[in-house]
């Protein structure tokens, strides 16, 4: 008998109290919780909540985004900036850094000190960015090894709360939920930001150029 048969057999023996004709849907699952705890403008709440994690948040419009990115990057005095495939070319400013593109091996990624990406979804209530390795985000290692991560979020990508984000995301893609820079509280419960992931996270929220009533 395989371990699989053993375990499945034990489970069925253990569940003698469950009627044979019961289906999972027969077990009530009340979903009386709210779809969202965001009752205000989602991008504004998102900005506030991301900042709570001591990540820097900057806002721009489509018109000013490129210049703002240029300023943010310039302030870092980067040597090498990773720009993933599919990142909007019109948002990539020129600068003193060396722009690095795929293919990159681990050593090259480790040597790069910044990465500029888009994201898939922003979650306002929790201040979370979700990357799904889509265009402008690249494979997961790109946003992991460089010590600085600048992530560009369009206002229309920001949803109110976790349920809306889960509904919008495609689980077949590798997903990374990022809420502030990496952190640890393992030593005397003292929070230290920046352990293994990028120690500095900056987020740029891009709103449309013109407000349409």
């Amino acid at each position: 008998m395989t371990a699989r048969d053993t375990i499945l057999g034990r489970i069925r023996d253990a569940l003698v109290d469950v009627p044979a004709d019961e289906t999972p849907d027969d077990v009530p699952l009340p979903r009386a919780y709210h779809r969202s705890h965001a009752d205000v403008d989602a991008p504004a709440l998102f900005a506030e909540r991301v900042a709570d994690y001591r990540a820097r948040v900057v806002e721009a419009t489509a018109d000013t985004a490129r210049a703002t990115i240029a300023e943010l990057l310039a302030a870092r005095s980067l040597r090498a900036l990773v720009v993933p495939p599919g990142f909007p070319e019109d948002l990539v400013p020129d600068g003193a850094w060396r722009r690095r593109a795929e293919p990159l091996d681990v050593g090259e990624l480790e040597a790069a000190d910044g990465v500029l990406t888009t994201c898939a979804v922003g979650i306002a209530v929790t201040g979370t960015l979700v990357l799904d390795a889509g265009p402008g985000q690249g494979r997961r290692a790109l946003t992991l090894l460089p010590d600085y991560h600048l992530c560009v979020v369009r206002a229309d990508q920001i949803v109110g709360d976790v349920p809306d984000a889960i509904a919008r995301l495609d689980p077949s893609r590798p997903l990374t939920f990022i809420s502030g820079p990496s952190a640890t509280s393992d030593i005397e419960l003292d929070r230290v930001e920046g352990v293994h992931g990028p120690r500095t996270l900056e987020v740029l929220i891009v709103r449309p150029s013109q407000e349409h009533p």
Partner: peptide, 28 residues
């Protein structure tokens, strides 16, 4: 993802959550 971080570290969300489905060519 609402219950766990708030109950464990007392944060609205933990810094990183990774999900993966099988393998992805060229990533991971």
């Amino acid at each position: 993802l609402q219950l766990l971080p708030r109950s464990s570290t007392g944060e609205r969300m933990n810094p990183y959550t990774s999900t993966w489905t099988g393998t992805t060519p060229g990533d991971g």
